[in-house]
Write a protein that binds this DNA or RNA. Structure first.
Lengths: 199, 199
DNA sequence: CTTAACTGACTGAATGGTCATTCACCGTGC
DNA sequence: GCACGGTGAATGACCATTCAGTCAGTTAAG
């Protein structure tokens, strides 16, 4: 009796926030900018979110969970580390291409926001990373990936590499083929992670 | 007649800004926080910098140039792509370890600040990246590195990977060995970039 | 069917607090 | 005395947040 109509407005506000935060950055963006973009009054935002910071928090929460869920599903459908990694990153590329503004907000604001909502953002991000560490470690223990490097390090490397790749794609307003670059990146990593023949 | 005595104060302010921005983030930090940390009056900052934003800009400028100069020097002293890359990253690790707060500000604020001082920050960063692209492309043309991947993509990948690695080291207050992780990372990349035997 | 209360989502002008920036005024050295 | 680096209280903007009021709809009564 309330959820049905309100959820529409809450989502309108979230979508507007993504757009505005992507364009100006969280700190420069005004709450009234978000309100205008969403087509609601300034005050309405406070019926759905406790504060400007809470708006950003809500944005992270809903979307990161979606991404994490997706990655979680990959391991079930693929068995080799190589095909899992390949699937994770190609899903990520699809996400970035279909929602570039959201991708921009998640990657850019996550860094700065660590400063004011530490535990929270770090936890969501940590969960994402942990899934990748598991995939790597699993691949190592099956002998599919070299064992002389730390799974944690590899996960960070790969995440950092793909994160930078997508961010620069988004910021440059896609003047090149992200999918192709992603494939190249994956090839390099997979070749670099082959078990040493001496093992 | 002014530079000699003032440069001391200007540097005090810059160093204080690094400390404060690293701890709270640029937007949350107050100009008066920087003044207190530097041991000067609020107004004094405006004798050396036109605005709060200009302070951040000055910070980028001086330090990025230093980094770029360092990278530029590497190519002269090393001839193979592998040893150049190895040297660039080990210099970078030294930098991060000796000035973690500065490293944090440069990497975190560079992203968000792209929003309000676009061309400027992007140019400095672009110059840095271009040097790496050159090293890669040169290695490819000599047959030291595989040619079936774009030099631009490889440069971004490597930068992203090392950037993420150092950032997470800085943020986690160094609970692990950055130098070791960096070496592992480099090994993976170099193995992954070996020319295909079929070539 | 009409009118009268009532509800609660929504509105946006007003409030209050928070700084970046300024500038009238020191004190020290020449 | 004056020139100048330095000072820090005062100023003025700028917003996040609030809240008194509007309005569309819903029920209740006559």
């Amino acid at each position: 009796m309330e959820r049905s109509r309100t959820s529409d407005k809450r989502n309108r506000i979230l979508r507007a926030a993504v757009k505005v935060f992507a364009a100006k950055g969280f700190y420069v963006a005004r709450v009234s900018d978000v309100a205008r973009e969403a087509g609601v009054a300034d005050g309405t935002i406070y019926l759905y979110f406790a504060s400007k910071g809470d708006l950003l928090r809500g944005l992270f929460e809903e979307n990161m969970e979606r991404l994490i869920e997706q990655v979680r599903g990959v391991s079930a459908k693929h068995d080799s580390a190589a095909s899992r990694l390949s699937q994770i990153w190609s899903d990520y590329v699809v996400f970035v291409q279909s929602e570039p503004e959201l991708a921009e907000v998640l990657t850019v604001e996550l860094r700065e926001s660590g400063k004011f909502m530490n535990e929270f953002a770090a936890d969501l991000f940590g969960a994402f990373l942990r899934l990748i560490v598991e995939v790597i470690a699993d691949g190592q223990s099956r002998g599919e990936l070299r064992r002389d490097v730390s799974a944690r390090t590899v996960a960070r490397l790969m995440f950092g590499a793909f994160d930078e790749l997508s961010l620069s794609w988004v910021m440059s307003k896609n003047k090149w083929d992200l999918e192709r670059s992603g494939k190249e990146a994956l090839t390099i990593f997979l070749d670099g992670l082959r078990p040493k023949t001496s093992e």
